[in-house]
Every structure is written in C-alpha cells, then in structure tokens.
Amino acid sequence: MSIYHPPRIPASEITPRGIYLKRRDFLAAVAMSGLSILAPDQADAAPLSAKKSGYTVSEKPTPHDDVTAYNNFYEFGTSKSDPMSYSGDFKPRPWAIKVDGMVANPRTFDIDQIMQEYPAEERVYRMRCVEGWSMVIPWQGFPLSALLDKVEPLGSAKYVIFETVVRPEQMPGQNGLFQPLPWPYIEGLRLDEARNPLTILAVGLYGETLPNQNGAPIRLVVPWKYGFKGCKSIVRISLTDTQPKNTWNIVAPSEYGFFANVNPEVDHPRWSQATERRIGTGGFFSSDRRPTLMFNGYAEDVASLYAGMDLRKNF
C-alpha cells in the first residue's frame, strides 16, 4: 500500500493570509494592466489569472472537490480516487514541451514561457466521459491554434499527436505487474479539429494551476469529444500526415475510435451513451441523469467539421 505524501512547501513560499485574501483584487488589477503575474518557480495550485471568455455554459459548475477527486488518469492507477491519492510525488516543474514533426519551426517550450506567452482565458466547458458521467469544469487555458501558429505547420500536416509523460518513479500506475495501458499515452486530432477555437491547452482549473491529478502542468481539452481525448501532462506535440493510433483505440479498437465525438446515438458496445450522470449532484436520491447532447452540446461550433461523414463508422 502506498502512502500519500503531501507536497512539502517551505515556509518561505507560503503566502501570508492578508495577501492571499486580497488575491482577487490583485488579479483584477493585473488583468487590467495586461501583465502576467506568473512567477517562474511556483508551488502546487498557484493562483492563475485568466480573462473571461465568451465560452461558458449556463449549467452549474461541478464542485472543485469532485473535479479534483474523481479522475481517470491511469498513469496513477485505474481507480477514480487513485490520481488524487497517488499523484503527490509528481513534479510538474520544471517542464518542457517539444513541438515537432511537420512544422516549419520546431520548438521546445518551457511551461512557464508558454504561460507567459499565451495568457490564460477562462473556459467553462462540459466534460463528458465515455463511461457515462459528466462534469462542468471552469478551465484556464489558451487555444491550441495559437501554439500551432507559432510552429507553422507545413501544408502536408494533417494530424496532431499528443503524448503524455512517462515517469514510472513518480507515476505508480506505470509500475508493477498489471499495467492497464501501453505507455506513453497517445492521443490525436485532425488538424482542423486542433485548430477549432474550442480546442484548448489548459494550464489551470478553478483559477489555480492544474492539480497533478488533472494533468499538470498542461493538458488538452476538447469539449465535444469524450474525456479520454484530453491528453494529460503533455511532453510532446507532433504534426504528421497520417492518422495516428490513439491509446484507447490500440487497446480496444471495437470500443474506442479515433474521433470519439460525444454522440448519444452511437452506443459503446457495453453501455448506452444516450444519457449521462452529472457528477457532484449529491447522494443516491439526488442523482442527476440527463440526456447526452450531440457533440456534448457544441454541435453549432463543430458539426460542420464532420459534414458527410458516417459518425457510426467514424466513432
């Protein structure tokens, strides 16, 4: 049995309560002056400034404690509570992301450099898991297209590959006898999907830098697709001309496709996708099961990407 080690924070790094309580005023002032406040060496869950964006939903956000306690992140274990319990030793700093492949300008970004170069905005998105549950999450992040513009994809590039870090010494799920998946975890998008304004790289949630269990320090969020498309703790983004094999598609090709668009009419072979349970709505008796929306409610923004495609075949 492993033991949860809380992060050791030196006393010098603890923000005095008076200043801490004033953080909203501080953030507002910073946002107005357009400056970034991100210190290069930050502790876990540092406050994160983000301007509001038009991308929000009217539904009530899932409570912070559920968003950070109920996770699929198999690098830390297959149980929903494993990521929170066993990610304490994970070090999201320092962190580099290599962007390469079919680009004119391949680059390796430092995470703090990224956060300075691409100021975060708030996106409140629905998150629908392929397992039949959902959340509403206030992310802080920036459009993936901004980063892609920087590296200048070649005309021949058609797909984007994302790769999660492999660190068996810090990620207990990558150790031991029964490893659920082949590592590294790989996800992919078509270039037009990657460039859609909804697609973001998230660096925070609920106004703080990403907790380890949610994919620190940087992860993909594609709100009209099932959650497993949201590659976490990304170390590499690569452009290519051939459709990549994503991890779940390799493990169970009959159950998980490349596109993985949320679709209430195309069932998982083992369960229906017609409805979903909204997490964080209380105990047994206030359980909220609601109809799943086509493209998770983002059809207006993304349906045109799949015009003429058979969504039953391209699940």
Binding site: S81, I279, G280, G283
Partner: peptide, 15 residues
C-alpha cells in the same frame, strides 16, 4: 455512506 453523500463523486456507481 451513499445516503449521507460520503461515497465519492459518483455514489450510485460506487455503490
């Protein structure tokens, strides 16, 4: 635990 909302974020599934 489930009836008192202490069975995690998805109590029905957990139960």
């Amino acid at each position: 635990l489930g009836a008192t909302d202490s069975l995690g974020a998805n109590p029905v599934k957990a139960f």
